[in-house]
Computed example of a mutant assay.
Amino acid sequence: MERHPITPRPDWQRTVEEQGLVYPLTRHPDGSLRPYWDESAYYSFTLPEVEALEETVEELHRMCLAAAGHIVTAGRFADLGITDPRIARAVAESWHRRAELPSVYARFDLRYDGTGPAKLLEYNADTPTSLVEAASPQWFWMRDRFPGADQWNSLHERLVAAWRKQAPLLPPGSPLHFAHSSADELGEDLMTVAYLKETAEQAGLETDWISMEEIGFDSLTGRFVDNRLRFIRSCFKLYPWEWLTTDRFGGHVLDTLDNGGGTGSTLWIEPAWKMLLSNKALLAILWELYPDHPNLLAAHLDGPRGPARTTGWAAKPLLGREGAGITLHEPGADPVIREEACCYQELAPLPSFDGNRVVLGAWVVEDEAAGLGIRESSGPVTDEYARFLPHVIL
């Protein structure tokens, strides 16, 4: 794994925007606009490195599924902050019927520097973004700059194949709706949903658009409807389950939830059992089930202990996103227990390449490793000001 400075392509911004990346710049707190898509450098990997990372990702995915099954079997929903019995029942039923429910994609965030085993930082299996840039613009960048190279990137083909394979699980006779929140100002959620909608259409599915805010509830029929008053039989939503089940329509979501087997009237993708994987309590349960695993960091829910007391630790809110709410504590610091529920994970500072902190985003489609996206940050936490850099296999 190496970082290589390179001159950006002429007119790179227009190029990536035409490829679906309509948010190539990020506005920083000082008001300046700086590249989010950053092709002033790229990363290279060897094929054996990528093959080893693929094996690691698929092993971690299997371990996470085993941990999800343990949570359900042992009834450990409270460890995830799921205290509403109705939500817990819905998640458990979804898990038991998972073979009947479409589930498409997820993203691991890994610490890796090319010299040791990759370490799991977290798993976003419900609403992962940075998909568009990983699947499309970085592939075309490689075709332009390194036409003889390869890339860890089978995302597009695997997504189309996943929709085609799972099409029989969708309710017949109605389109698959794709929904994002209209509160998204940057266009990232919109374009992520647009891209997934395109892959579903290439798989032969009938689709339609809607924003989460436009979804209505028909009290006469007890069903969700779109803005043309058609029943929403199935819906891919880029909207976290913890929001979906707790906003003002949350009760209706649970009442009408199609969890497979012909129950309910609305099937949501990703399914409710993905709540088990997108919660950072999973990290602590993984460490409990697989202590000292080479790809895990020590993690606990009741405060920093074990290796974290000597190496330092990161306190992560159970449902935080894009680095929000994460605090880092240096080795030897006095234990601090936060009021909000957190996972306390052994500190593993992100590797620095030319002064840039790097995290690997490794994608899973269905149950297989499918691609890589790399983000760099200036600080120790990968946040909303991170940059996306392309990669090649040389």
Rank of each mutant, 00 (worst) to 15 (best):
residue 24 P to G: 04
residue 132 V to Y: 03
residue 14 R to L: 15
residue 120 L to T: 07
residue 180 H to G: 09
residue 162 A to S: 14
residue 362 A to I: 08
residue 229 L to Q: 13
residue 212 M to F: 07
residue 143 R to F: 08
residue 135 A to C: 05
residue 177 H to R: 13
residue 79 D to P: 07
residue 319 L to E: 03
residue 96 H to M: 13
residue 214 E to A: 13
residue 130 S to P: 04
residue 288 E to W: 04
residue 246 T to Y: 03
residue 300 H to C: 02
residue 102 P to H: 00
residue 102 P to L: 01
residue 94 S to W: 00
residue 263 T to Y: 06
residue 117 P to S: 10
residue 227 N to I: 15
residue 34 R to T: 14
residue 226 D to H: 09
residue 161 A to L: 06
residue 281 A to Q: 03
residue 254 L to C: 08
residue 51 E to V: 07
residue 103 S to W: 09
residue 303 G to W: 01
residue 250 G to T: 07
residue 253 V to E: 02
residue 365 V to F: 00
residue 131 L to Q: 08
residue 270 E to F: 02
residue 43 Y to H: 14
residue 223 R to A: 10
residue 268 W to T: 09
residue 372 L to W: 01
residue 353 F to R: 11
residue 224 F to E: 04
residue 45 F to D: 00
residue 374 I to A: 02
residue 34 R to P: 04
residue 113 D to G: 11
residue 374 I to N: 00
residue 385 Y to A: 06
residue 285 I to R: 05
residue 327 T to H: 05
residue 343 C to K: 02
residue 126 D to I: 04
residue 204 G to Y: 09
residue 298 A to F: 00
residue 19 Q to L: 15
residue 234 S to T: 10
residue 256 T to E: 07
residue 206 E to H: 15
residue 7 T to A: 15
residue 152 W to I: 11
residue 160 V to L: 07
residue 278 S to P: 06
residue 195 Y to H: 09
residue 385 Y to Q: 08
residue 46 T to K: 07
residue 312 G to C: 00
residue 83 T to S: 08
residue 17 E to R: 12
residue 128 P to T: 08
residue 15 T to L: 12
residue 295 N to D: 11
residue 168 P to S: 10
residue 323 G to L: 01
residue 9 R to C: 14
residue 237 K to V: 08
residue 177 H to L: 15
residue 365 V to T: 06
residue 191 M to N: 12
residue 95 W to L: 08
residue 385 Y to P: 01
residue 66 A to K: 12
residue 342 C to H: 10
residue 180 H to I: 10
residue 169 L to S: 10
residue 296 L to P: 00
residue 34 R to A: 11
residue 169 L to N: 14
residue 71 I to D: 01
residue 277 L to G: 01
residue 73 T to N: 11
residue 277 L to F: 05
residue 353 F to T: 11
residue 111 R to C: 12
residue 148 G to Q: 13
residue 85 P to K: 04
residue 305 R to A: 04
residue 151 Q to L: 07
residue 248 R to I: 11
residue 183 A to M: 14
residue 178 F to Y: 04
residue 300 H to Q: 07
residue 282 L to C: 07
residue 246 T to H: 10
residue 8 P to W: 04
residue 227 N to R: 14
residue 312 G to R: 03
residue 156 H to K: 13
residue 16 V to L: 02
residue 5 P to T: 12
residue 384 E to F: 12
residue 15 T to H: 11
residue 295 N to G: 07
residue 180 H to S: 11
residue 126 D to S: 04
residue 315 A to R: 02
residue 190 L to R: 13
residue 210 I to C: 11
residue 1 M to Y: 14
residue 381 V to P: 03
residue 341 A to K: 12
residue 349 P to Y: 04
residue 30 D to I: 15
residue 358 V to T: 15
residue 284 A to L: 06
residue 251 G to H: 08
residue 10 P to I: 08
residue 350 L to H: 05
